[in-house]
Design a protein around this nucleic acid. Structure first.
Length: 480
RNA sequence: GCGCCGUUAGCUCAGUCGGUAGAGCAGUUGACUCUUAAUCAAACGGUCGGGGGUUCGAAUCCCUCACGGCGCACCA
């Protein structure tokens, strides 16, 4: 005995031995399942012969008969086993089977006196013996740490968690269909980058032994997707993981799922329409409506059209200060009790004011447009005002859910902007020369869009934490 | 990294003023052939997150460490 797994584990090992003693293989193999429990229940009539498989979730023994609940990926239902139906020998085997075990069974449906659809077991096979005790049947598993660390237990026990992840899968599938139906090509670009680009986040660093070079997990796929525009793919999207070496919070996981979409000959306004249509179609699918009352009691209304406001106007509306023209922006910001530093630029203060005063209060979807060019190095500036860009952020429920712009396709301007950004960068960052070279071949004007999928799923499934929509969220190791 | 809160049986939770730890469920044994949070009976189950301190005595007070939650910071 190398490890003490507790008295319950020992007890279950004894039950396992008892089964082996009776000639039962406790870890069965392939089992021909006749159908799901949901299909049995949905087509229920007395006298049907059915074969199902699942995990035993509850057990009510009555001496010479036993009621138990069995659950598969679709649903839970009651089964009934009697010694006279299966014989004394098999009944003895079954009395060593317990909650948590996975079995397959064949039987005939009937309805109990209390009206419960039930399967009268005629034969059964043990498919997997469980050695760990399941959480309590009534209160279930609540401890969030255990729920995240041992998600498998969370999924066994908590149906709402299971449903959230089924919905997540459905949402992602719908997003794929939405873009594929519109002629977009799904592509996969590198996750390991020589030069991390497309965002300013801190990357995870790794090393390739055979090549002898450092590599970085991508912080965004943007620069590669634009290379594909240069290559002649006019509509592309990528739906996959990004990695950012930053703090973890209710809204941040180090690896998260991002959708990036690029459409040649379009612009940021086309991206707005695309975003609106996507969100509305997802809301219809998940909520059955464009409106939904969240668990905090506040209604989210995604009905079109959505509000549009410029960053500058949004800030003026919130605090009455126009940071783009005010004489001393630092002083004005300090007077407005904004947490600014003395070396911040006018644009940075404007963005700070937006994040502090505007963003948290935008509950219903709002396109905030015209971010300063200085903070948007990959976006095209407006012809009418070169200080701001053809860019929007979509804010819903106080969170940024999407970011899009008319892509800067002027290679000379792009080089200048990236160089300027490098000057202010803390650590030694490099300019992605190949990206510039690609632009020099000519990239069609295009609209580009990024959507944080985890946050979108949070919205649609009414989840407060990103950990509730990521199956295995990042935690510190549990070694104690 | 900082602040606040939390960690008691496998699970869900009590634990009073500092006096030596309890319940329900699960598990074990026994009874029971229509139960469904089945019921009844008995026995079992504890490193009170780890370590240190104060005290005659610590789950309880203090320090420290670990992990988690929330907030801040970080994050175009």
């Amino acid at each position: 005995m190398s490890e003490d797994k507790g008295i319950l584990f020992e007890q279950k090992l004894k039950n396992l031995d008892a089964l082996i003693e009776l000639g039962v293989n406790p870890y069965g193999a392939r089992f021909e399942v006749g159908g799901s429990i949901a299909s049995v229940k949905n087509n229920f009539a007395d006298g049907m012969k059915v074969t199902i498989a699942g995990r035993i979730m509850a057990y009510r023994g009555h001496g010479k008969s036993i009621f138990f609940d069995i659950k598969d990926s679709t649903e839970k239902m009651q089964a009934y086993i009697q010694n006279k139906t299966v014989g004394e020998e098999q009944f003895a085997v079954f009395s060593n089977i317990e909650i948590g075990d996975i079995i397959g069974l064949t039987g005939e449906t009937f309805t109990t006196r209390m009206g419960e659809p039930t399967i009268k077991v005629e034969s059964f096979t043990l498919l997997s013996k469980s050695l760990q005790p399941l959480p309590e049947k009534w209160h279930g598993l609540k401890d969030v740490e255990t729920r995240y660390r041992q998600r498998y237990v969370d999924l066994i026990v908590n149906d709402d968690v299971r449903n959230t992840f089924k919905l997540r899968s459905k949402i992602i599938q719908s997003i794929r269909s939405f873009f594929i139906d519109k002629g977009f090509l799904e592509v996969e670009t590198p996750m390991m980058h020589h030069i991390p680009g497309g965002a300013t986040a801190r990357p995870f660093a790794t090393y390739h032994n055979a090549l002898g070079i450092p590599l970085f997990l991508r912080i965004a796929p943007e620069l590669f997707l634009k290379r594909l525009l240069v290559g002649g793919f006019e509509r592309v999207f990528e739906l996959n993981r990004n990695f950012r070496n930053e703090g973890i919070s209710r809204r941040h996981n180090p690896e998260f799922t991002m959708l990036e979409v690029y459409q040649a000959y379009a612009d940021y306004e086309v991206m707005m329409e695309l975003t609106e249509n996507l969100f509305v179609s997802l809301a219809q699918e998940v909520w059955g409506s464009t409106k939904h009352v969240m668990s905090d009691g506040v209604e989210i209304d995604l009905t079109l059209p959505w509000k549009r406001i410029s960053l500058k106007d949004a800030v003026v509306e919130a605090c009455g200060i126009d940071f783009t023209t005010v004489a001393d922006p630092v002083k004005a910001a300090i007077d407005a009790k904004l947490p600014v530093k003395h070396d911040m630029t006018r644009d940075e203060i404007l963005c700070e004011a937006f994040e502090e005063l505007v963003e948290p209060k935008l509950y219903n979807p709002t396109f905030v447009v015209h971010f300063p060019s200085s903070v948007s190095p990959l976006a095209k500036s407006l012809d009418s005002d070169p200080n701001v860009t053809a860019r929007f952020e979509l804010i819903v429920r106080g969170q940024e859910l999407a970011n899009a712009y008319s892509e800067l396709n002027d290679p000379l301007e792009q080089r200048k902007r990236l160089q300027k950004q490098l000057e202010s960068a803390e650590d030694s960052k490099q300019l992605d020369e190949d990206f510039i070279r690609a632009l020099e071949y000519g990239m069609p004007p295009a609209g580009g869009l990024g959507i944080g999928i985890d946050r979108l799923v949070m919205l649609l499934t009414d989840s407060d934490s990103i950990r509730d929509v990521i199956l295995f969220p990042q935690l510190k190791p549990e070694l104690s």
